Amino acid sequence: MNELNQTVAPNHDSTTVPAILPIKNSLLLSCAPIYSCQLDGKGKSIAIAPDGQATVKQPCWLHLDFTNPQTIDWVNSTQLLSDLAKEELLKPIQIAKEARFDSGILVVLKGVNITPNALPDPIVTFRFYITDNLIISTRHQQIDAIAFLKENLDKGIGPVDVADWLIQISQLISDQVNISFDNVHNNIIRLEDNALNQRAFSYKEIGRVRKQLIVLRRLLSPQRDIFVRISTERISWIDDNDRQHLHDISNQQSHYISDIDSCLLRLGSLMEQINGFLAESTNKRIYLMTLVTLIFMPLTFLTSLLGVNLAGIPFSEAKWSFGAFVIIIIAVCIGSIIWLKSKKWM
């Protein structure tokens, strides 16, 4: 069966690639792509018909689900990829990385899918192997950045070549992370306003926001280095302008990391502020209870003393004794208050 693997082998020089990439129905059925097209060089895509062919003049993009058994069989059997590239494209659990091969590069990136009212936003992993005229990408979960890239191709503002595809998908993934960070930052501002106005706050919500920031930082740190490495690699199909774009994306990642570090410090300061409010509120309550105890302590002593059931208590038979006792209690209470004020305890 004539397949792509017969035309673009990993270690072949570009001069050995024939003029036609025979991507036919047999190939499309065998790899079961989620999406397959060719870039027309003007920002749009050309769908690959079941009985159509793809030329090497227009880059081909195959987007696959790595959990699909047909995809697994095709990836394992194709000669387009080295054994390491096959393993990385099919591995379910991945960290962000970049690997250089003779004919191209393999990149694993992590992004976020923006989900309203969800903390943290779900993290998705995107893998792709890219050469000068071929892109093979795999995923399992739906990725928003891929959907946006397809929309750009439909609108005619998509990538014109493989280098532009790499830049646009990297930028879209970076933009999604930025949106997720902006949502978290807005939550931090709201929490700070609530703390300043001493409104209701939740340690659980603060913990969720902190977790989202930590996840985003762990996501961005290695990817910043990946974009730096790609921009410095001497790859024939990446020109100086493309390298500058990748370097700019790396700078954006560095900026996000700095902002995340700043937000983590703000959350720490917010926690200290909230703990201070709680301590102050607790101290006020304890102080008030102490004052009440000081006022009523002599009264308790008098009532306990006069409440003893013993004969011979002075003036127990007099009619005015109860009234006098009440006046004494009031006088002691007023005297205690005056004494506390003189000590500036009230």
Rank of each mutant, 00 (worst) to 15 (best):
R190N: 15
S170G: 07
N183M: 07
E192M: 06
L166Y: 00
I179Y: 05
K150W: 05
W165C: 07
L172P: 04
L166H: 02
A147F: 13
A200P: 00
L196Y: 05
Q176K: 15
L153C: 07
K150S: 06
V160M: 10
F181N: 11
I169A: 02
S202M: 01
F201K: 02
A163D: 05
I169F: 05
D175R: 14
V184D: 01
V177Y: 03
I167L: 08
I189V: 14
N187E: 13
D175Y: 11
N194R: 12
L166R: 09
R199S: 06
F201L: 13
A200K: 14
L149P: 01
V184F: 00
E151T: 15
D154T: 14
D193P: 01
Q168S: 12
V160W: 00
L149I: 12
L149V: 10
I167A: 04
E192F: 06
G156Q: 03
G156C: 03
N187F: 03
A200T: 14
N186R: 15
H185P: 00
D193Y: 05
R190F: 08
V184G: 01
D154W: 02
F201T: 15
V162G: 07
Q171C: 09
S174P: 05
D154E: 14
F148S: 14
Q176W: 02
L153H: 06
A163I: 02
L149K: 10
A163K: 08
D182M: 09
N186H: 15
R199P: 00
E151H: 15
I179L: 11
D182T: 15
F181D: 03
D164G: 04
I188K: 03
I167V: 11
Q198N: 11
A147V: 12
I179A: 07
V162Q: 11
R190T: 13
N194D: 07
V177Q: 11
L196F: 09
Q171M: 11
A163T: 07
I188N: 01
I189N: 11
I169Q: 02
A163E: 02
Q176I: 09
S202D: 07
N197Q: 12
N186D: 15
L191C: 06
I179V: 14
E151W: 10
V162C: 15
K155R: 13
N183P: 00
S170R: 08
I188P: 01
N187M: 09
